[in-house]
Design a protein around this nucleic acid. Structure first.
Lengths: 218, 218, 218, 218
DNA sequence: TATGAATGAGTATTCATTCAT
DNA sequence: TATGAATGAATACTCATTCAT
């Protein structure tokens, strides 16, 4: 009983930067659980422990808040992946492995972030749309690059066209997304397992492609 | 008085089944373009050429309408794929190829249907959630089956566990989804190309796996 | 007690046109008493005996509702004035008298209408602005016409320029506005008195002007 | 450390009177452009170059701030007009002329002040209402006095009643208001022109009245 | 079978105002 | 003297849903 004469449950008068972070954190949670439309500003404000006007004072609108969320989380995700693959002297398969590990680890450690990003990555109707899609494109482009590099090293270029590369990148990114979400909702699946599955699935397939061992109908 | 005093410009008094189909068609369009939350019942009713109360009379609620949409479209998609792979005597790779062709063809021919299905397939927050997820699970299970079969035929089972199989199925389904959406929004990409990409990407990868040629870190 | 088994205080299910009129009526009252900004849609809906959504269904927005109000009331006012002065063969003073009588009578009989119109007639900041100002300009132009006619008949045109005419019209309209509002808030002042005051004030002044009896400083 | 370590870019710590003037100045601008309701305290504080709490510290509330604005501007307007007509030995027409010149000059030189005053002069709904109306009444009373004086000098009193005088004053004030606003929004119209128009319009009309030359219907 | 009329319950957003320093 | 941080209360507008016919 001594001390603590009025337990202050909600820390008040915090500096703007701190409050702003709290708000975006809350928004990540809410958008992750309900999606953009169904999440309400009331809910977000309450979840952040502040009043609605303060959210508007700092973040201006639901749309800007969402944009801030996507940007921050996308930046974080891209950041860890980029750092993992930064060593350009490493062989492509090791770079891919490192990137995948970083990616699956991020998704596992920040399930809400991943939920927001993946949910919105393919949504087009919304007024903002692009923000998340842009990040996906960035990742896809990076993967395209990796695959392209590998193709160049292949004996005879393996007859792989630019569109082939794009399509393969789409496939690879799609399977990574799918695996990440599945891993998050399936108890006991680790980031390493997910990465290994994808590595095996993808890399050996790509390897065969590079050796011109293509499957064709009939 | 004699003769057509009611000049039915908008065909009225149609049998229930027909009206219902019109409504679900309209709903597919609207949900595809705007998503579940942003699509409005007003919009759907107008797009179907009927009054709102009629929509409620036949479909009861927005949620049930959406469920009906997902069910019908999922059924259609599953139907064409199932029919394509029905010949259990065919070799697994040919069955997979046939299934992929059916899948990508459906997605290409019914872009709105595919948009609704894929957009909702991984959404969890909504009150209904399951409907679309259920279909995805069904497809994934079928793919798991195919992969499992292949593993059994492999010399020594190749040391592939049940969860390996599930993970591979998730990866495969994810890449199919990603490729389908990419194909739909990229002019000039045909269903056959998409299917071929995936077949090469996946099947050879799987083939290597079966031969125990696994990639592992270090 | 007999009969009236469930006194229906609010007539329900009225045809759209009727409801719409009720709403605009209510809006006239509210805008008159509180001005555009301070009047709330809740208040207007309640005053009209309907729910807010119905107001929006029929009138679309506060701005459109206000525009509808101004348009309807301005039309009504212009209508009675125009009808009063329609006989172009009558001498100008009689036409002016008839117009003033019509104007002051309208203002007296529809004090709310007059309040809305006069309050908004000179407001410029609002997003719509023009609607009411347009009506004032129309009236002013008509008065300009009358004065211009009179000037033409004057011996030697009396040296009156176009801008003189405009200025005189502004003065005349301003005094009419002022008198109308004063009459409405001063018990016992009739429309006829107000019209007579203005007629004397204005017409004789104009008469002198026409005779070139101008006042000048020094 | 030595020397100007506080480089006060925005002059800070000003004496209260100065700050207060800045705030009221800013308020005049904002209220003039947007009206009472639409002007926001944020806007006013920013326009005054101070923080909102300071505005509240000095002016207490939006309503009091507005009252302060009206009072100051009305005082200023009344002041210049009163000074212009102070010579009670001058003939009435010259006093009126001097008053009108002062009025139109003020309106032209302080368009924002005039905008606030005229916009609010006839507004009744607002909670304060009176402040601006009071000033108008004061001016009207003064004009009434002038007209009454003239009537007394007229041969036989010209049969002019007290209410006639009030009505004429309303008309005169109304036309002055209208002309002032018109002059402010019409490029090239000078205060002198406006005053001359009104003088001619009004004074000759009044003169006729005094000579019992009344217009009457029929 | 079909609809025009109507609303309860929200949602994003804004604003005057105050507290703690 | 001066302000950054914070909010209660309102406001315009929307939407899924139902009633009466």
């Amino acid at each position: 009983m001594a001390g603590a004469e009025r337990a202050l449950p909600k820390a008040r008068r915090l500096p703007r930067a701190v409050r702003e972070r709290q708000m975006v954190d809350a928004a990540v949670r809410c958008f992750a659980r309900n999606g953009y439309q169904a999440a309400s500003m009331d809910e977000i404000a309450e979840s952040a422990g502040v009043s609605k006007p303060l959210v508007y004072l700092y973040l201006n609108s639901k749309e800007e808040l969402f944009t801030a969320v996507i940007r921050r989380e996308a930046q974080a995700l891209l950041g860890v992946v980029a750092e993992a693959v930064v060593d350009r002297s490493a062989p492509p398969d090791e770079r891919l492995w490192a990137g995948l590990m970083a990616f699956f680890t991020f998704a596992a450690e920040h399930p809400d972030s991943w939920a927001v990003l993946s949910r919105q990555a393919r949504t087009q109707g919304e007024p903002f749309a692009g923000e998340a899609a842009r990040m996906r494109d960035e990742i896809t482009a990076f993967v395209s690059g990796l695959i392209g590099e590998a193709a160049l090293e292949a004996p005879g270029g393996a007859g792989i066209t630019g569109r082939d590369v794009d399509a393969l990148a789409q496939a690879l990114v799609g399977s990574a997304e799918s695996l990440a979400s599945w891993a998050n909702e399936t108890p006991g699946v680790t980031a390493k397992e997910a990465a290994a599955t994808l590595m095996n699935f993808a890399w050996s397939g790509l390897g065969n492609l590079m050796k011109s061992e293509r499957w064709s109908p009939r």
